[in-house]
Protein backbone atom coordinates (compact mmCIF):
# COMPACT_ATOMS: atom_id res chain seq x y z
CA UNK A 1 0.00 0.00 0.00
CA UNK A 2 1.24 3.45 -0.90
CA UNK A 3 0.48 6.61 1.02
CA UNK A 4 0.14 10.00 -0.61
CA UNK A 5 -0.04 13.36 1.03
CA UNK A 6 -2.10 16.13 -0.53
CA UNK A 7 -2.27 19.67 0.76
CA UNK A 8 -5.16 22.09 0.41
CA UNK A 9 -4.26 25.72 0.77
CA UNK A 10 -5.71 29.05 -0.29
CA UNK A 11 -7.56 32.06 0.96
CA UNK A 12 -9.48 32.23 4.20
CA UNK A 13 -13.05 31.19 3.54
CA UNK A 14 -12.22 29.47 0.24
CA UNK A 15 -13.31 26.15 1.74
CA UNK A 16 -10.21 24.14 2.62
CA UNK A 17 -11.81 22.67 5.74
CA UNK A 18 -15.08 22.11 3.86
CA UNK A 19 -13.30 20.34 0.99
CA UNK A 20 -11.55 17.92 3.34
CA UNK A 21 -14.78 17.31 5.25
CA UNK A 22 -16.61 16.65 2.00
CA UNK A 23 -14.49 13.66 1.04
CA UNK A 24 -12.72 12.36 4.13
CA UNK A 25 -13.56 8.78 5.05
CA UNK A 26 -12.45 9.33 8.63
CA UNK A 27 -13.81 12.04 10.94
CA UNK A 28 -11.82 15.10 9.89
CA UNK A 29 -9.49 16.72 12.40
CA UNK A 30 -10.06 20.46 12.58
CA UNK A 31 -8.22 23.17 14.47
CA UNK A 32 -10.79 25.91 14.05
CA UNK A 33 -10.96 28.66 16.63
CA UNK A 34 -13.09 31.77 17.06
CA UNK A 35 -12.15 34.43 14.51
CA UNK A 36 -11.35 37.82 16.07
CA UNK A 37 -10.33 39.50 12.80
CA UNK A 38 -13.14 41.92 11.94
CA UNK A 39 -11.96 42.12 8.31
CA UNK A 40 -13.05 38.52 7.80
CA UNK A 41 -16.70 37.66 7.63
CA UNK A 42 -16.52 34.28 9.34
CA UNK A 43 -17.10 32.91 12.79
CA UNK A 44 -14.29 30.36 12.90
CA UNK A 45 -10.89 30.08 11.28
CA UNK A 46 -8.27 27.35 10.97
CA UNK A 47 -5.05 28.10 12.84
CA UNK A 48 -3.26 24.76 12.86
CA UNK A 49 -4.21 22.20 10.27
CA UNK A 50 -7.07 20.14 8.92
CA UNK A 51 -6.67 16.44 8.39
CA UNK A 52 -8.68 13.83 6.57
CA UNK A 53 -8.09 10.60 4.71
CA UNK A 54 -9.43 8.70 1.72
CA UNK A 55 -8.67 5.22 0.46
CA UNK A 56 -8.24 4.57 -3.24
CA UNK A 57 -9.73 1.54 -5.02
CA UNK A 58 -6.27 -0.05 -5.31
CA UNK A 59 -5.79 0.13 -1.53
CA UNK A 60 -3.53 3.16 -1.58
CA UNK A 61 -4.25 5.84 0.98
CA UNK A 62 -4.39 9.61 0.46
CA UNK A 63 -3.86 11.78 3.51
CA UNK A 64 -5.41 15.20 3.13
CA UNK A 65 -3.98 18.20 4.94
CA UNK A 66 -5.41 21.72 5.02
CA UNK A 67 -3.33 24.76 5.89
CA UNK A 68 -4.45 27.93 7.63
CA UNK A 69 -5.23 30.57 4.99
CA UNK A 70 -3.71 33.69 6.47
CA UNK A 71 -0.08 34.40 5.60
CA UNK A 72 0.79 34.97 9.26
CA UNK A 73 0.60 31.18 9.46
CA UNK A 74 3.02 30.66 6.57
CA UNK A 75 5.32 28.62 8.84
CA UNK A 76 2.57 25.97 8.81
CA UNK A 77 2.52 26.08 5.00
CA UNK A 78 6.15 24.93 4.97
CA UNK A 79 5.61 22.26 7.61
CA UNK A 80 2.54 20.79 5.94
CA UNK A 81 3.85 20.72 2.36
CA UNK A 82 6.98 18.78 3.26
CA UNK A 83 6.96 15.60 1.13
CA UNK A 84 3.54 16.42 -0.30
CA UNK A 85 2.55 14.68 -3.50
CA UNK A 86 0.45 17.60 -4.63
CA UNK A 87 -0.93 20.99 -3.78
CA UNK A 88 -4.46 22.30 -4.32
CA UNK A 89 -4.84 26.08 -4.12
CA UNK A 90 -8.40 27.24 -3.47
CA UNK A 91 -9.34 30.80 -4.34
CA UNK A 92 -12.56 32.54 -3.30
CA UNK A 93 -13.76 34.63 -6.26
CA UNK A 94 -16.05 36.69 -4.03
CA UNK A 95 -13.08 38.31 -2.33
CA UNK A 96 -11.99 41.77 -3.49
CA UNK A 97 -8.82 40.74 -5.35
CA UNK A 98 -8.74 37.04 -6.22
CA UNK A 99 -5.76 37.40 -8.57
CA UNK A 100 -3.74 39.12 -5.86
CA UNK A 101 -4.77 36.29 -3.51
CA UNK A 102 -3.45 33.77 -6.03
CA UNK A 103 -0.16 35.65 -6.21
CA UNK A 104 0.23 35.35 -2.43
CA UNK A 105 0.08 31.55 -2.61
CA UNK A 106 2.24 31.29 -5.72
CA UNK A 107 4.87 33.25 -3.85
CA UNK A 108 4.34 31.48 -0.54
CA UNK A 109 4.72 28.06 -2.16
CA UNK A 110 7.25 29.09 -4.83
CA UNK A 111 9.80 26.54 -3.71
CA UNK A 112 7.30 23.67 -3.55
CA UNK A 113 5.76 24.56 -6.93
CA UNK A 114 9.06 23.89 -8.65
CA UNK A 115 8.55 20.15 -8.28
CA UNK A 116 5.07 19.57 -6.82
CA UNK A 117 1.99 19.16 -9.04
CA UNK A 118 -0.60 21.84 -8.37
CA UNK A 119 -4.20 22.58 -9.32
CA UNK A 120 -6.13 25.80 -8.79
CA UNK A 121 -9.79 25.59 -7.73
CA UNK A 122 -11.82 28.79 -7.92
CA UNK A 123 -14.96 29.00 -5.83
CA UNK A 124 -18.12 31.13 -6.05
CA UNK A 125 -17.63 31.74 -9.78
CA UNK A 126 -21.35 31.49 -10.47
CA UNK A 127 -22.16 34.60 -8.48
CA UNK A 128 -18.82 36.32 -9.11
CA UNK A 129 -17.87 36.09 -12.79
CA UNK A 130 -14.69 38.16 -12.68
CA UNK A 131 -11.88 37.45 -12.79
CA UNK A 132 -12.62 34.68 -15.29
CA UNK A 133 -10.80 31.36 -15.37
CA UNK A 134 -8.90 32.70 -18.40
CA UNK A 135 -7.78 35.66 -16.29
CA UNK A 136 -6.39 33.19 -13.73
CA UNK A 137 -4.58 31.25 -16.46
CA UNK A 138 -3.11 34.47 -17.86
CA UNK A 139 -1.97 35.51 -14.37
CA UNK A 140 -0.36 32.10 -13.90
CA UNK A 141 1.39 32.27 -17.27
CA UNK A 142 2.74 35.73 -16.48
CA UNK A 143 4.48 34.16 -13.49
CA UNK A 144 5.75 31.22 -15.51
CA UNK A 145 3.20 28.61 -14.42
CA UNK A 146 0.97 26.41 -16.55
CA UNK A 147 -1.49 24.90 -14.11
CA UNK A 148 -5.06 23.62 -14.42
CA UNK A 149 -7.69 26.09 -13.20
CA UNK A 150 -11.25 24.89 -12.64
CA UNK A 151 -14.40 26.23 -10.97
CA UNK A 152 -15.30 24.31 -7.82
CA UNK A 153 -17.98 24.07 -5.20
CA UNK A 154 -16.02 22.45 -2.40
CA UNK A 155 -19.22 21.39 -0.64
CA UNK A 156 -19.67 18.83 -3.42
CA UNK A 157 -17.53 15.71 -3.07
CA UNK A 158 -17.49 15.23 -6.86
CA UNK A 159 -15.86 18.65 -7.32
CA UNK A 160 -13.19 17.94 -4.72
CA UNK A 161 -12.51 14.51 -6.22
CA UNK A 162 -12.16 16.17 -9.63
CA UNK A 163 -9.42 18.43 -8.20
CA UNK A 164 -7.58 15.38 -6.90
CA UNK A 165 -7.98 13.51 -10.19
CA UNK A 166 -6.55 16.49 -12.06
CA UNK A 167 -3.64 16.56 -9.66
CA UNK A 168 -3.00 12.84 -10.22
CA UNK A 169 -3.18 13.32 -13.99
CA UNK A 170 -0.75 16.20 -13.77
CA UNK A 171 1.66 14.14 -11.67
CA UNK A 172 1.46 11.33 -14.21
CA UNK A 173 2.14 13.75 -17.08
CA UNK A 174 5.12 15.18 -15.18
CA UNK A 175 6.52 11.68 -14.65
CA UNK A 176 6.11 10.82 -18.35
CA UNK A 177 7.81 14.07 -19.33
CA UNK A 178 10.65 13.33 -16.94
CA UNK A 179 10.98 9.80 -18.32
CA UNK A 180 11.04 11.00 -21.94
CA UNK A 181 13.65 13.63 -21.19
CA UNK A 182 16.06 11.02 -19.80
Amino acid sequence: MKEYKLVFTGTTGAGKTTAINAISEVPAVKTDVANTDSTLNKEFTTVGLDFGQINLANGDRVRLFGTPGQSRFDFMWKILTKDAFGLIILIDNSRPEPLADLAVYLEGFAQELRNTPCVIGVGRTEEHHTPSLDDFSTALESKGFTLPVIPVDVRLPKDVILLIELLMAQAEADMQEEFLSQ
Partner: peptide, 29 residues
Protein backbone atom coordinates in the same frame (compact mmCIF):
# COMPACT_ATOMS: atom_id res chain seq x y z
CA UNK B 1 -6.87 32.22 19.91
CA UNK B 2 -6.60 33.04 16.21
CA UNK B 3 -3.01 34.15 16.43
CA UNK B 4 -2.90 37.91 16.98
CA UNK B 5 -0.53 39.61 19.40
CA UNK B 6 -2.68 41.21 22.12
CA UNK B 7 -0.02 42.29 24.65
CA UNK B 8 3.68 41.56 24.82
CA UNK B 9 7.10 42.31 26.20
CA UNK B 10 10.04 40.78 24.40
CA UNK B 11 13.75 41.11 23.97
CA UNK B 12 14.63 42.62 20.63
CA UNK B 13 15.29 39.30 18.86
CA UNK B 14 11.72 38.08 19.13
CA UNK B 15 8.75 39.08 17.00
CA UNK B 16 5.49 39.04 19.01
CA UNK B 17 3.34 38.74 15.87
CA UNK B 18 5.14 35.59 14.79
CA UNK B 19 5.10 34.09 18.29
CA UNK B 20 1.36 34.79 18.55
CA UNK B 21 0.61 32.98 15.29
CA UNK B 22 2.81 30.00 16.15
CA UNK B 23 1.36 29.73 19.66
CA UNK B 24 -2.12 29.73 18.22
CA UNK B 25 -1.27 26.78 15.93
CA UNK B 26 0.48 24.85 18.70
CA UNK B 27 -2.38 25.45 21.14
CA UNK B 28 -4.99 24.40 18.57
CA UNK B 29 -3.09 21.21 17.79
Amino acid sequence: VDGFDVASAVTRDLEPAKIAAMASSIAAI
